[in-house]
């Protein structure tokens, strides 16, 4: 995929979100620690990284949904069409959420109200953002949306409760609700992790189709590197609360320059290679985010290429190819290792 050219709609700059705890708020867990990235109009962006690396918190920060206390955005900017969302009032944010930026969560059961029919929930969401719409009109539109996301018999399904739908159908209903107001940006936090491969493929194909049809950008948070390879235009690899490598998916996956990116790629088995290939865990544990030293590469403790230089200074983000950036002092070694692998 080529380097993105469209307009930048979301520009996250040096975002920092901490969780404070202890008697005097002295323990600072730096969940997001200087994360920067851009999303272009209609782009499919993937965010990957180990559990606890700050993927969900960064998404919540963009949506203005970080729980306070203990969470606090202590720095950075989230520019949406140039406007800093971190400075927006609650009312402004409420208007933006749903209408301009929508979010889909991993667990549909936590986001769908169990005692309201699926159609009614979507209809209500529609009416919040379109006060002029009648109930009847909204219900008809809701059923239409359910049909559009591939749910058979949408009129019947619209009158059912969430528990009457399978996991995959619930997730599709969530997506129908999220796209009901035609947002410009959809943030999806592991929307398919709980689903099996065929339903996962159906849901992601749906997201991809909707994005093309509506010109909507998608930020997909996922553990599944295969999904990233198949669907994403670009990928952000996050470690210790910041992006360590970003760029077009092809460049990052075929020619990774960060040892952590390569570590993730080597941890997954590959269906296309003989059995026995892959599954090399990344040594050590993810960092304790309240203790990451500020003046070193966060990955140094687990990195096979780490030298004293890595422990004494933070590697800057540098361009290694068109639109491909990486923060590491030993990019060459990593790339060489990658090239030797199938």
């Amino acid at each position: 995929m080529a380097v993105q050219e469209g307009e930048v709609i979301l520009d996250v700059q040096n975002l920092q979100t901490w969780f404070l705890s202890g008697k005097h708020q002295e323990t600072r867990l730096r969940a997001v620690d200087g994360l920067s990235y851009q999303v272009h109009k209609g782009e499919f962006v993937a965010v990957v990284g180990e559990s606890g690396s700050g993927k969900s918190v960064s998404a919540l920060s963009v949506m203005g949904l970080v729980p306070y206390p203990p969470g606090l955005i202590v720095g950075g900017k989230v520019l949406f069409h140039g406007k800093d969302l971190l400075q927006a009032t609650d009312e402004e944010m409420q208007a933006i959420r749903g209408e301009k930026i929508a979010m889909v969560f991993q667990e549909p059961s936590t986001a769908l109200n169990p005692v309201v029919t699926v159609g009614k929930q979507i209809a209500e969401a529609l009416r919040i953002h379109n006060p002029g719409m009648s109930k009847k009109e909204a219900m008809a539109k809701a059923a239409g949306l359910l049909g559009e996301v591939g749910i058979p018999n949408p009129e019947v399904r619209a009158r059912q409760y969430p528990f009457e739908l399978s996991g995959g159908m619930q997730q599709r209903a969530m997506i129908a609700m999220a796209v009901s107001c035609g947002p410009e940006l959809l943030v999806a936090d592991e929307p398919t992790t709980a689903l099996d491969v065929t339903v996962q493929a159906q849901v992601l194909d749906l997201l991809d189709r909707l994005r093309k049809k509506l010109g909507m950008a998608v930020v997909l948070i996922t553990h599944n590197l295969g999904v990233v390879a198949r669907y994403a235009d670009s990928v952000k690899v996050v470690y210790g609360g910041k992006a360590v490598e970003t760029g077009p998916t092809d460049a990052v996956f075929e020619e990774p320059c960060h040892p952590y990116t390569l570590g993730l790629l080597r941890a997954v088995p590959r269906l296309d290679l003989p059995r026995g290939y892959g599954l090399h865990p990344i040594v050590g544990e993810p960092p304790d985010m309240s203790k990451v030293p500020e003046e070193s590469c966060a990955f140094a403790a687990r990195c096979r290429y780490a030298t004293d230089g890595c422990r004494e200074g933070r590697p800057p983000m540098e361009e290694v190819g068109e639109g491909h950036y990486c923060a590491c002092f030993h990019k060459g070694e990593t790339l060489e290792e990658r090239r030797a692998l199938p």
């Binding site: 996962q200 493929a201 295969g226 669907y231 790629l265």
Partner: peptide, 24 residues
């Protein structure tokens, strides 16, 4: 099933045949 499972190498994944499975 095999074709629905994506492979984490874009060049390889794109070259594979897609057999999609519709419905439930």
């Amino acid at each position: 099933l095999v074709s629905a499972a994506p492979i984490p190498k874009p060049s390889v994944d794109r070259a594979r045949p897609r057999v999609s499975l519709e419905g439930e």
